[in-house]
Every structure is written in structure tokens, then in C-alpha cells.
Nucleic acid binder design. Structure first.
Length: 221
DNA sequence: CCAGACGTTGTT
DNA sequence: GTCTGG
DNA sequence: CCAGACGTTGTT
DNA sequence: GTCTGG
């Protein structure tokens, strides 16, 4: 799955890597947790792409309360076309979630060991995501939110965990974001990223605590 | 018809 | 909003 | 994902 | 054990 990640690439590099219309101001993040505001890349008017800050944890448009989003932080690639919580977003509101890597927890005896996974040699990439626009029926407050799509693990990730996020190489960004894409065009994009293009290493349990957002979270332990 | 769910992960 | 279960 | 809370009444 | 918050 993907319940924690990091994004330290500067806004200027991000704008180039994702073809953004404008350059965003972004502080580096070493420990991004669900419920926080995260940057996503989505199609904008005029065929461009924009960066938006939305809450991680998708709140479907029909939800009565925002709390449902606390548990919808991931969407299974195998079923997102059918699930009521995701299918509408899958059809009309796909996005990329920029990251430099993500964390997975490996069961070790009674405890857990956090691992960092990223592209071999590092570098920013896009995770497949869905977003939603919701308005609180009680207060009228609008809220935009997102979920990260997960798939089966490749051979590397499988040594740590049984799910991983969908990583989209730059060549596939346009296909995933295309507003008129059909299910048959989208489904093949949701495959596990090749293991030989990635690397993984254990990190400090410092990352367990969402309050510890610091460089040590991504150093080998 | 109305009521209630709508999700993933991990653990048992 | 839409589907399933009663 | 993990960490931390998990409750009511009455009084200040 | 389960839910909420980050």
C-alpha cells in the first residue's frame, strides 16, 4: 500500500517534470502522512496542467461527513472502476501525486521495520491518484481530496509488503491525465513498476511518528 | 418500498 | 448518487 | 501508514 | 479493539 511518502524536489524541478503551467512554491517534506494537504497534478483548462493542494484521504461527493476520507487513502487498481467511492473520480478526476519515494512497513517478528522505496538513484515520479470535490452539507465548506492508487508489488517491493502504489513514468503521464481516456486505455497503466528500476533500504523508526518531518526520515538505517 | 453502505490494510 | 439487502 | 485516544459530571 | 488525527 502507500500510507506515507516523501517529496523533497523543489518546485522548479517539479514544474519541469510534470509540465506545469506555473511554478509552485513547495517546502521539502520528508514524512507526508494521510489527512495532510498534499500537492497533486491534474489537467487544467486549455490542455495544461496545474498543481493543487488537497487533503490526502478521498471524500466522495456524496459523503455526509468528511471523516470517511480518513480511511480512503488508497484505491485498489483492481476494483476502482466499480467501487462507489472511487468510480466517479476514476472516470473524471484522475491525478498524479508527485513523490521522491514512499515508505512501507515490513513485519518482523512482533514488530515492524520501515523501508524506503524509490527510483534507482532517486528522482521525482508521479503516483497514480484520484481526486474529489466535496462540500460539507452542514457548514457549506468545500473540500478537495485525493487517494493514491495501489497495485500488486513488484519483486523488490514484495520482499517488504504485499501492495505498492502505482508509479507512472513520465511517458505515461499524459495518458493517465487525458480527460477523455477510456477504461481500456487506462487499465494497462495500472501495472507494477519494474523492480529493476527501483531500490529499497531500511530507515529509522523515526518515520513512524508523523510529527517527525525531517531529513533523517529518509536516511539509511 | 426504505435503510444502510459506500474502503484498504492487517490481523485473527 | 447508486447499489444491495430486507 | 503510525500514534494516541477511548468519558461524564460538575465546577472554575 | 476501534476510531480519529496527523
Amino acid at each position: 500500500m502507500c500510507g506515507r511518502y516523501f517529496l523533497t524536489t523543489p518546485g522548479a524541478v517539479l514544474a519541469e517534470a510534470f509540465g506545469l503551467d506555473a511554478m509552485p512554491e513547495l517546502a521539502p517534506r520528508w514524512n507526508v502522512a494521510p489527512s495532510q494537504r498534499v500537492p497533486i497534478v491534474r489537467a487544467a483548462g486549455g490542455g495544461g496542467r496545474e498543481l493543487a493542494l488537497v487533503r490526502w484521504g478521498l471524500v466522495p461527493f456524496w459523503a455526509k461527513e468528511a471523516a470517511i476520507g480518513n480511511r480512503l487513502i488508497n484505491a485498489r487498481a483492481e476494483s476502482l472502476a466499480e467501487k462507489p467511492a472511487f468510480r466517479d473520480s476514476y472516470r473524471k478526476r484522475r491525478c498524479l501525486v508527485p513523490a521522491d519515494g514512499f515508505f512501507e512497513w515490513q513485519k518482523v517478528g512482533a514488530g515492524k521495520q520501515p523501508w524506503l522505496l524509490r527510483l534507482r538513484g532517486g528522482g521525482v515520479f508521479g503516483m497514480a491518484g484520484l481526486w474529489s470535490s466535496w462540500r460539507d452539507p452542514a457548514s457549506g465548506e468545500p473540500l478537495e481530496s485525493c487517494a493514491i492508487v495501489t497495485t500488486a508489488p513488484n519483486e523488490l517491493a514484495a520482499t517488504v509488503h504485499d501492495r505498492m502504489p502505482v508509479l507512472l513514468p513520465r511517458a505515461l503521464h499524459a495518458a493517465w491525465l487525458a480527460p477523455a481516456a477510456s477504461p481500456s486505455e487506462l487499465a494497462p497503466l495500472l501495472a507494477p513498476f519494474p523492480a529493476d528500476g527501483m531500490e529499497a533500504f531500511p530507515v529509522s523508526k523515526l518515520v513512524n511518528n508523523p510529527a517527525r518531518d525531517e531529513p533523517a526520515c529518509i536516511e539509511p538505517a
